[in-house]
Structure formats: structure tokens, C-alpha cells
Design a protein around this nucleic acid. Sequence first.
DNA 1: CTGAAAGCGCTTACAG
DNA 2: CTGAAAGCGCTTACAG
Lengths: 346, 346
Amino acid sequence: MADGDTPVTMSDVARLAGVSTATVSRVVNGRYGVSASTIAQVRSAIERLGYESSLVATSLRRSRTNVLGLVTHSFQSYTAEVLKGVMEALSQSGFDLIIYANSDLYGTYSEGWEQRHLTRLSGTLTDGCIVVTPWGEVRSSTPVVVIDPVRDSTVPSVTADNLTGATQVVEHLLGLGHRRVGFIAGRSSLAAAWSREEGYRRALAEAGVPADPTLVGRGDFNPESAIPLARALLERPDRPTAIFAASDGMALKVLEVAKELGLDVPGDLSVVGFDNIPESALAEPALTTVDQSMYRLGYEAAHMLKSLVTGEWEGPRQILLPTRLVVRGSTAPPKITAPSKTATRV
Amino acid sequence: MADGDTPVTMSDVARLAGVSTATVSRVVNGRYGVSASTIAQVRSAIERLGYESSLVATSLRRSRTNVLGLVTHSFQSYTAEVLKGVMEALSQSGFDLIIYANSDLYGTYSEGWEQRHLTRLSGTLTDGCIVVTPWGEVRSSTPVVVIDPVRDSTVPSVTADNLTGATQVVEHLLGLGHRRVGFIAGRSSLAAAWSREEGYRRALAEAGVPADPTLVGRGDFNPESAIPLARALLERPDRPTAIFAASDGMALKVLEVAKELGLDVPGDLSVVGFDNIPESALAEPALTTVDQSMYRLGYEAAHMLKSLVTGEWEGPRQILLPTRLVVRGSTAPPKITAPSKTATRV
DNA sequence: CTGAAAGCGCTTACAG
DNA sequence: CTGAAAGCGCTTACAG
């Protein structure tokens, strides 16, 4: 039963069964050309010792491991949803999943992290990897699919249609009568952040509302980064009547700042986020946002990676997934039509 | 830059730097006894080739890997919370984390899965493992900490104080005036399921309310399993005025069945769950439940595992974490005091 | 049908 | 200060 100290190896099995490790290997892997009686002996030895082959040794020797990797730098609600989608896509596929997370996560050197771990895994352990929201472009000797790539990435990827989503947010606000709409941007290297900002600009331009660059704050998707930006926007005399934050995490902070400043949402200020994380529905008031099915992002990425590994992929290598505007309690028509004369000249 | 097909190995670096792989290894691992000029040469070769050592090869050769493993059979909200706690505990610890999930997750052979993968990882890849909600007792050649062990498990573990939590639920219901309280149990092999049921029994006994075995349904923590059980309980003429389900997932299904049968919650029926998953707060009405900080379960398990691996653990090997009753809209006094004459004889 | 041998990419005594 | 060699636990041609 060997609950002892040293793990049971193939040699232990071979010794007990009175055969070579080559033969044990053949039995373990169901190869042809082993006599029935030998198989029985080996099987019983395996059973007695509770042997399982070492994943590491097997991976090192074989070219194909049937293990796919996923590299992420955090475990937020976002990641959990992505993982559910990934697991669903991999269910019954014959591929197992290894998720690699490093302990310096909240520490200093996030930068380049994905690339380092991608490389450490992909040569040997995994047949391919999914990388979630990397800080830079990634490369690998085995197939990779990126969820939320950096701008101008050429690697296979899956992204939500952030441009359309953001456009709809602004159209929604304009439709309610808002004219001064603030924006809090995300980490600008990410394609997602760029598209959301671009959607904001385009929708305003299309409606003929002149863009006011001072209404745009530069956040980085970290919720905390939104606090000073929201404060700056809301403390000005000509404050916006609505703020669109590039992520729910940041939008939730805008809500807090508004409360702190005694502003009523949605009476004095409309707030919109992006992502539709579970917390958004729980906020007071519930947050209007854009749903970007993180589950589907994970599902499609895993599906694509699987086919890339087996060489069966036929579709496009850059997938854009639809988003959906979710209107909740945090948006309403502005109380006053023209908080600033100059801003309403359309 | 080698974005090509074959990964860059240590031999490639050695060749380019004009040294042996032994020397490259020394540089990579910062060992003493390499001349400054050689270090520089090797470093530059590493840089040029974008070399990263193979996790697999390194693990196979070394006894200590500084990688901890986590084996789970699902990625529900539960797991995501646990992971956050684990990552927090491991932050800056020098240990990385590998999560192993197999693709037959929703498939046939869940049973014994944890043990198989635990063994495949622990000999070589990981220095120790956390196993989440296993189906049986586990054993390993390296340290293991189980979150939510099976009953009578002797392995180091972390569990919520389910007994107290469940007791408080029933006391809460009795306090509201309920006397016929139904119970939907979880997978009975799990210690958590057993304790929750035991808490239910004890609280009734202590209050002198005779236990009615026909009021107990045998679920298995799978939400679906609660549906027929809830229906059976609620369709009887002497139906309970309250149902306590051993998990939020099952309690949410009870809510659905009640709605389907035209019963008002909490008017006609009070419902209580256990776990406090995010969805509980979103339910209509919001679910009264027991919070068992899954974040802390993960945190404590990782903390303990880390110390077990380094040999510094001093504390108890079986940890019990406090729970907290969260009263929300799904519980209220029963409308009718005595739906069944015999049941109220106290 | 079976085994001896080489080798996957590393690390670590052991010589020098 | 550096390299040749052995070996971690497996798999896979190659002989027989």
C-alpha cells in the first residue's frame, strides 16, 4: 500500500512482477504484444503497490502529453468564469488541464510572468497553452491561444467585441439625454482597453458630441486606480452627468466615490461598467454594464486550442465574441439638461 | 528568438556560450564557483535564445521543486473562493501553485480521481498537495492537506465548523416558531454532510422537538438531487413549514420547487441553505444561509501545507474554522402554528 | 512476446 | 573554476 515516504516507481512494479520496466510500460499504456499472463502479473503488481505513473517522467519522455496548460496572473471572479468555460470545452476531450499560478502574484514582478511560465511548461509538460490577459505579446514552441491579447497581437486569440459593447453603452447614455460623459480607461496596452475607449470616442463623435479630453481618466483595470480619477471628475464644477468605467471593478469604485461625495446615483450621476461580474448585480444601485460572457471566452479558447494541437483547426485564428448591454439601476436621465453651457453645443 | 518549433534547451545555451550544460545549470541556479566572465557569457546566451529551464526536467531531477499542487474536481464559485485564499497564503512564499483538473470532470469516473492525480503529481512535480472535497481518504508520499475531508479521515485537513453552523440554523428556525423542519442532506461520506445533519438532529433534540425521519431527504450536494426530494416534502399534506438544505446549491432548487408549487417563501415556507455562495444573495427572496468563508478554508489549507512541507508545522493537523449564520429574506415565522397536530406536541 | 539500451532535459557528486 | 558522467522515471526503437 506504500503510504510511506518514497513514491512507487515503475521499477518497483517491474521487480515485483518479475519483468522489465519496458514491459510494465507497455501494460500501463495498453500497447500490443504482451502475453495475457504477463499482463495479469503486472496488473496485480500495480494494484498491490498502488502504482501511478509519474506525470513528469512521462511528459519528459513523450512528445505528446494530452495535457493543456493555462497561465493566469489572478483568480478573480473573471478567472473563475473563464475556467468553467475551459473545463466544459475540455470535458471528455481526452485533454487534462494544468493551471499554473505563481506565488509572487500580488508581488513585484508580474511583467513577463506569462512568457516565463509559458516557456517552462510548453516544451515538455503541455501540448499547448491558454494565456489569460497577458502583459505583452507571447510566443511559444507549442500552440497558444490568448484570451484578451495586447494590441496588435498576431497570436491566436479570443476577445469580446469590446468596441460594439462600449459603443452601445455610450449610445444608451446619450439616449437618456447625457451629454457630458466621463470615461475611465483600462490598461492601455490591452486590446480590450483600447477598444472600449475607441467605442466611447466613436459613439460620441457619431452623435456629434464634441470629445472633451479632460473627461477621460487613465486607469489600469485595477479597481483602486479609479478612485482618484473618479474623485477628480466629480469634484469639478462642470462634472459629468455620467461616468463610463472600462471595467465593473472600477465602476464599483466610482459608485463608492459618488456616495462619499454625497451624489445620488442615478439621480445626480449615471454610472456604467463593463464585464458583468456577479458583484455588479449586487451593488446598490445595481450596475448597468456590458456582459462579455467570460464563460464563452474560456470555452472558445479551449476549443480552439484543442483543435490547434490536434491540427484540426479550420476557423479564424482571432475570434471576436458578441457582448450584450445589461441595463440596471445605475443609469437614468440626467436631472439637469445642461450642467455646462459650452458642453451642450451640439 | 526561437519562436520556431523546438523549444530552447540547456544544451543550446551551452553550445552558444561554449561551455558545458553543467556550467549553464550552475549559472541558472546561481551556484557558487563560476567565473564572472563565464557567467556573463552564459547570461548573454540565455538572453539571446530566450531560454527558460523546463519545469518538468528540473522537477524530475530535483527532490524539492517549490511547487505546490491543488487537485479539484470542479470549478464552481466555491472553488474560486478557495483558490483566492490559497493564492493569498502562497503569495511571496516562494512556492508556485499547480492546479490539476481532469477533462472527464463531468464524465464517468470521478471516483478515485483525486488519488490518481495526487499520486501522479506528488512523486515528482509537487512538494505537497491540497485536495478539495475528495471522494475518499487520500494518501501520498508527500504532505497533503484536505479541504472538506471524508468522515473519520486521519489526513491533515481544514473544515468549517459545520456542526455549530447547522445547529444555529435550526435554532433560528425554532426561534421563529417552526416545529416541522425538513432537511435535505449532502453526500453522506463527506464529513461536512454528516456534521450538518448531526447539527440538525441535535438542535431539534435539544429543543425537545421529536425527529421525524420522513422529513429528511437524502441528496448528494448536487443541486439537481434536491429537486425530487423537495417536491416529495412539499407535496405531502403535512408538509414542513421550513426546509434546511445542506448546501446553497440545493436550497436554491428548493426555492424553485416552492415557486413551481405556488408556495410563497417565506410566507408558506422558510428555506435555509449552507455555504453562502454569491448566488444566494441574488436569489428572490435572498437566501438565509451559513457563511463558511471558503476563502479562509483555502488560506488555512495552503498555510498549513506550506509549513508541513518545510517541516515547520506546529499546530493541530485538523483545523476547524468558525461559521456564521446569515439571516436574509427566505426565513420568517410560519403562518400557521400547527400544520399538523401531532407534530407540535413538545 | 520480452529485455537491454538509449535518451527526454535537467542537476549533482566526482575529478581535475 | 569547469567538464564528463550518472541518474531522476519513464518510453521507444532495436534485437532477439
